[in-house]
């Protein structure tokens, strides 16, 4: 469907962009890569009065890796992440998951900040941010603030951001080199929306028991979620077959997914457990560095 009518501005500074968003009646919207937001407008899920394009604002894209953080600028595209070989060392969960994001052409324009703001529960980046306990840097009319990923997602396609707030970057806390991780996603065609997905990481103590277990799930709720029962089933245990099966049962038991034309609720419950099992097998058997 053709897009609804809107005005368009492409400011050259963040301050100007925030001012444009704040000046409207709340129906002005920022646009990053537009790979989700243009379809949202085509389907009339949003009819903004003004689109504020972030593409001319300097310093919004790029990947910085320090001892404390992997900081990804909001306008960094999927393809920029996949092209950056440093991530496989610094935060290997990220490229493994991003490999499932959409198709070739979409990855050339879609952005990390746009995906977080779009807050699609079927998308990879929101669940990655939640699982890795990332922080989101935001600028708005009242100034800067930091939003923990756990406080960003409030519902399907909904966030706690104010209408005048723009995501500047997402910061993933740096990983110990020995951290174990797994990612599994299932969709009918690679690159399509996930029917379910699991992202996880944990560390091991000197006796080989899992600690700091964090498991996030895709496409089984209105928002990205952590699988707390499955995390508890693994915490302090060696990740062996019995522990993996316990976590799988816990995961299938704790989620309450919706049914849609793509999959029934029962199927999704079963699928998320199966994917968790596979992700844990891959995490626990991957050769340590």
């Amino acid at each position: 469907m053709k897009l609804p009518h809107f005005d368009y501005q492409a400011p050259v500074s963040l301050a100007e962009a925030v001012a444009l968003l704040a000046a409207g009646d709340g129906s002005a919207r920022p646009i990053a890569g537009g790979q989700s937001f243009l379809p949202v407008m085509a389907f009339r899920l949003a009819e903004p009065s003004l689109l504020v394009d972030l593409r001319n604002i300097p310093d919004l894209s790029g990947i910085e890796i320090s001892d404390a953080w992997v900081r990804i600028g909001a306008m960094t595209r999927w393809r920029d992440l996949l092209d950056d070989a440093r991530l496989a060392e610094a935060l290997p969960l990220l490229p493994a998951a991003i490999d499932h994001v959409a198709h070739y052409q979409i990855r050339n324009r879609g952005t990390v900040g746009g995906s977080l703001a779009h807050a699609d529960p079927a998308a990879e980046m929101p669940t990655l941010a939640l699982t890795c306990e990332a922080e989101i840097d935001v600028v708005g009319a009242k100034g800067k603030r930091v939003v923990p990923a756990s406080a960003l997602f409030t519902g399907a396609l909904s966030t706690s951001l104010e209408a005048d707030e723009i995501i500047v970057a997402v910061r993933f806390p740096a990983w110990p080199r020995t951290r174990r991780w797994g990612f599994e996603e299932f969709s009918r065609r690679r690159g399509d929306f996930a029917l379910a997905g699991v992202a996880l990481c944990y560390d091991e103590d000197d006796k080989g028991r899992a600690k700091n277990v964090r498991i996030g799930a895709i496409s089984v709720a209105d928002t990205p979620i952590r699988l707390k029962a499955a995390e508890a089933a693994l915490e302090g245990r060696a990740v062996d077959t019995a522990a993996i099966e316990a976590a799988q049962a816990a995961a299938s038991g704790e989620v309450d997914p919706a049914a849609d034309i793509h999959a029934s609720a029962r199927y999704r419950k079963s699928l998320v457990g199966t994917l968790l099992n596979r992700a844990l097998v891959s995490a626990s058997t991957r050769k340590a560095k």
């Binding site: 368009y8 492409a10 243009l38 394009d53 393809r79 050339n108 324009r109």
Partner: peptide
């Protein structure tokens, strides 16, 4: 140089 979907890009963004 990048393949993109021209239905997901505004003409005004092609400046």
């Amino acid at each position: 140089g990048d393949a993109v979907r021209s239905c997901l890009m505004l003409a005004v963004q092609a400046k």
